[in-house]
């Protein structure tokens, strides 16, 4: 069951300050409303994974590992590989993250990342069929939060994309209906590079890339995913407030522009 989250009363003073700043177009860490924090992308950090990446947005740190294994396809897509995304809110990443089965926030996060990749057809799943209807490659994308300082959605998706872009797949052949894995590797076939851009609405101001203090102060959040062709491929609103229709239309416009910058960063880091 989904329950209204708690807000700490100690933080209320800080929230008031952030809302006050927002009304003047200012932010608590000195950024302009449409600025991201510094984005740092490292790839190939886990040798045993098919692909991996760590993305830092400011102090936020997320590590993503990609493992590719043979498995069975879904009955409705017998000729296609399978993509699966899982998010772990490990307790080391934030004092409010607790042990136990995945909660709605981590389920929502993994589904947003999944939606961005799936709807833009980022991974070319049609090339991951081994024996049609029987055996395909399953791409496991595991999101591991390390340090939560806000905007986990963007950090996770950028890390997932960076990991996929540097993923290697073993070459193989099929002998007598058996899969034989070879030693040499090829890159994972990719079609698209979707970039989600997350906005927070604080007071009446929209800001990009909220840090954790701003996430506490925001009334609502909107993530807009943009694909290679500047089309919208995924969206998700979160939080207890709402947006005026005109705010959403301008957010889409901003996201289209901003996604180009960030896509360039990721493409350079994964080349």
């Amino acid at each position: 069951m989904s329950t209204t989250p708690h807000s700490s009363e100690i933080l209320t003073l800080e929230c008031d300050h952030i809302i006050d700043l927002a009304s003047k177009g200012k932010r608590i860490d000195g950024r302009a409303p449409m600025d991201y924090r510094k984005i740092k992308i490292q790839t190939g950090i886990i040798e045993k994974a098919n692909g991996s990446a760590q993305v830092d947005i400011g102090q936020t740190k997320v590590i993503v590992g990609v493992k590719i294994e043979a498995g069975t396809p879904f009955p409705d897509t017998p000729n296609e590989g399978v993509q699966t995304v899982n998010a772990e809110f490990t307790p080391l990443a934030h004092p409010t993250f607790e042990l136990g089965p995945p909660q709605e926030n981590s389920i929502e996060l993994s589904r947003i990342v999944d939606r961005n990749l799936r709807e833009s057809k980022a991974i070319d799943l049609t090339k991951l069929s081994i024996i049609p209807g029987k055996k395909v490659f399953v791409v496991f994308i595991d999101l591991n939060m390390l340090d939560h300082y806000g905007n986990l959605i963007d950090a996770s998706t950028y890390a997932a994309l960076s990991a996929l872009l540097t993923s290697k797949l073993n070459k193989y052949e099929v002998k007598n209906d058996e899969l034989v894995i070879k030693d040499d590797q090829q890159p994972l076939p990719m079609n698209d590079y979707p970039i989600p851009i997350t906005f927070a609405k604080i007071g009446k101001t929209l800001m990009l890339d909220p840090n954790i203090q701003e996430e506490n102060a925001m009334s609502t959040r909107l993530t807009v995913g943009i694909d290679n062709e500047d089309c919208v491929c995924a969206m998700q609103k979160g939080g207890l407030g709402g947006f005026e229709p005109s705010e959403i239309e301008s957010a889409v416009e901003t996201a289209i522009q901003k996604s180009k910058e960030i896509r360039k960063l990721i493409m350079e880091a994964t080349r």
């Binding site: 995913g225 089309c231 919208v232 491929c233 995924a234 969206m235 998700q236 609103k237 005026e244 416009e253």
Partner: peptide, 13 residues
């Protein structure tokens, strides 16, 4: 006030 918006698929601006 828009209180829910989600999207999947592909739409130009």
């Amino acid at each position: 006030l828009v209180t829910l918006i989600q999207m999947d698929g592909k739409l130009s601006k």
